[in-house]
Design a protein around this nucleic acid. Sequence first.
DNA 1: AAACAGATGCAACTTTGTTGCAAAATAAAT
DNA 2: ATTTATTTTGCAACAAAGTTGCATCTGTTT
Lengths: 140, 140
Amino acid sequence: MQEAIQDILKKNQLSITGSRVKILELFLDQPGALAHGDIERRTGEKFDRVTVYRTLQVFLSKGIIHSIPTADNSVLYALCKDECGEGHHHDNHVHFVCDKCGNTVCLDEVTVPVIRLPRGYKSSQIQVVVNGKCKACSRD
Amino acid sequence: MQEAIQDILKKNQLSITGSRVKILELFLDQPGALAHGDIERRTGEKFDRVTVYRTLQVFLSKGIIHSIPTADNSVLYALCKDECGEGHHHDNHVHFVCDKCGNTVCLDEVTVPVIRLPRGYKSSQIQVVVNGKCKACSRD
DNA sequence: AAACAGATGCAACTTTGTTGCAAAATAAAT
DNA sequence: ATTTATTTTGCAACAAAGTTGCATCTGTTT
Ligand SMILES: [Mn+2]
Ligand SMILES: [Mn+2]
Ligand SMILES: [Zn+2]
Ligand SMILES: [Zn+2]
């Protein structure tokens, strides 16, 4: 685990620091997406708010995490599983937001569909966010 | 024009006030989506910021406008063209954000596709946001 | 161990959004 | 047309979210 984290940081030419290790750990420890606030809480406010912002920005620009748009316009982040790198993200999967438990997850196995646009429009990226009940919540 | 606006407000049992008329006018005057900030600017800061927030909230709850999630998590609003009403929105169309001119539009003729979810997931709503170049911007 | 580059924390600030309340405007009743 | 009742508005104060500059500290390289 600690090794995997150090690998990720080294591969992206980032120095290994407390906040980066801890925040990466949070992402690797659970399957879903995290909001800035979640991270502050789960680190026990050990790091300055500004440091968390900057760490997320660096991870984002390096292609370690990607951001997820949601219907209520809160900012969520999740680990990139494909081979994303500095500048080029390929996270063309669908995101799912559970209305009951609030969790947001990447559905890596569900790729975004082709959208037929009207004449003249050129698409560069497509974001699909599905709301509903997740596996756990639709059982009961 | 003024009549159409009054009709909309009456139909939704809203009193006819300066801010509501002016803000509806803005939406009717142009084809795209508007952010809160756009509205403040285009009204020439004639109305209090709080009034604009409350007006948008009322319009949203009445089904006069709908909100659009974007990749950069800014909040946009656009007129509902279908028959949306208090509580029930049916804005199942794709949204397009132009990376060049920044405009966001409703592609009313492009309906959101069916998404096959993994076993156990139940969907209640699907948001599709396409980025790229709009008709005007892809010409040059 | 020393030197350098980069990351952190702090303070100060901006932007965005919310709430309570008195004053003003609108709608309804007389 | 006036009065009354109901909404809406603007203001002030606040809270939350995000940004920037700068001095200090930490990690990396030699
Ligand atoms: Mn994802
Ligand atoms: Mn729309
Ligand atoms: Zn759930
Ligand atoms: Zn354009």
